[in-house]
Nucleic acid binder design. Structure first.
Lengths: 132, 132
DNA sequence: CCTTAGAATTAGAATTATTCTAAATTCAAC
DNA sequence: GTTGAATTTAGAATAATTCTAATTCTAAGG
């Protein structure tokens, strides 16, 4: 996670600040389209392409993250520390959870894939309380 | 995983059998479009919509799985036992790996999300050998 | 066998998601 | 202030996915 100081040093444009604040202020994971709609509330002249550009930029800078679990549009999420997801196989609801990363699991994953590891995340598939 | 007998009992149509065989025979994860192109080789008159319908059907029956890691089209994979993925944050390459599911992790995930758990999968993000 | 109803397939249109383009604007550095 | 690079804009283009309506297949009942 970047510090406030580091974020300031990026010299974000007005548009990128708006996109970032929309995501930071949201409790939900937002689709690009939802980010666009909410951003327009703050900056009516912002264009769709700028939202996409901003999302890509912010993602590359590590300020937000993109998740997609098959079916439908990507969703964007404020970047917090490492965290995991649960997704409802019935209604598609997506929630954040935090699990401890067991000792060694990342090392094993790196070993088996031959990848240089960055992060390891868990995805639980199941049925959410409303769908149960 | 379904047994051969269970699969036969589904009475798959010719088209669905072709789609399934394309995925089963592929070493790679395929996009819907790739499945369509390969299926046409076996059944030239098959339509795009049928491929999508078949993919949805086969997924619901648990014969194949869909993965998507943000950016681009979903990919379809033969359903094996529970397994995990590593994805290259540089080139997007996706590989299957198998990690042991630590004792308790699924129970904890269910506890924290309040979901009725079905599966828990890991995703390693890192840099693949070619990009290193 | 026939008929028939439901499911599946087809071709293509429609919709949704994402990226690209070219012109205008902004912004920082000289 | 001028210049050049980066960004934004509006809208077009492309890609991904779903829908529609007409046709075909299939399995069950007579």
């Amino acid at each position: 996670m970047k510090s406030t100081k580091e974020i300031e040093e990026l010299g974000l444009t007005k548009q990128r600040k708006v996109v970032l604040s929309v995501i930071m202020d949201s409790k939900e994971h937002l689709t690009a389209n939802e980010v666009f709609e909410l951003s327009k509330g703050l900056l009516p002249k912002i264009s769709f392409a700028t939202v996409y550009n901003s999302l890509r930029f912010l993602k590359e800078e590590g300020l937000i993250s993109e998740v997609n679990f098959g079916s439908g549009a990507s969703k964007f999420d404020r970047m917090t520390d490492r965290h995991d997801h649960a997704i409802c196989s019935s209604c598609g609801k997506l929630v954040d959870i935090l699990l401890d990363l067991p000792e060694d699991l990342m090392r094993k994953a790196a070993e088996r894939s031959k990848f240089k590891p960055e992060t390891l995340e868990f995805t639980l598939r199941g049925t959410c309380p409303e769908c149960k």
